[in-house]
């Protein structure tokens, strides 16, 4: 089963709630769906919410960096929200937090579908 993403757009903020295992196999459809939503809403801020991500390898880092480039080219910002400890460790190992800010929100882990 291919993963799907949930997102919500309000004013110029697009929040994408990533779900499942972010490996090479699953990242491609997630990337495509995220890019479709970005093209549709042209947000000033894209928030990638990791609270529903159960596994991530370097494919997830590639996804973040690719979206960072895309948002940067549009003059928009990117935030990483609610990574679990192992995911945050990987993000820090890749030094991604130097260019993309990590935030924690109150609804962390309680996102309903």
């Amino acid at each position: 089963m291919l993963p799907t993403i949930n997102y919500c757009a309000e004013r110029r903020i697009l929040s994408v709630f990533l779900k499942g295992e972010l490996d090479h196999h699953n990242t491609r459809p997630i990337r495509e769906q995220t890019d479709i939503a970005v093209t549709k809403y042209r947000p000033a801020l894209l928030v990638l919410d990791f609270s529903g991500v159960t596994f991530m390898d370097s494919s997830g880092i590639g996804l973040v960096m690719g979206r960072y480039k895309r948002m940067h080219d549009m003059g928009a910002d990117l935030l990483i929200a609610n990574p679990t400890p192992p995911i945050e460790r990987l993000i820090r190992l890749a030094s991604v937090e130097r260019i993309v800010r990590i935030v924690y929100t109150a609804h962390s882990g309680t996102v309903k579908e």
Binding site: S58, G66, L93
Partner: peptide, 11 residues
Amino acid sequence: EEERAGLGFAI
């Protein structure tokens, strides 16, 4: 072009 981060070996 496939957005591979180049971090496999480092990880």
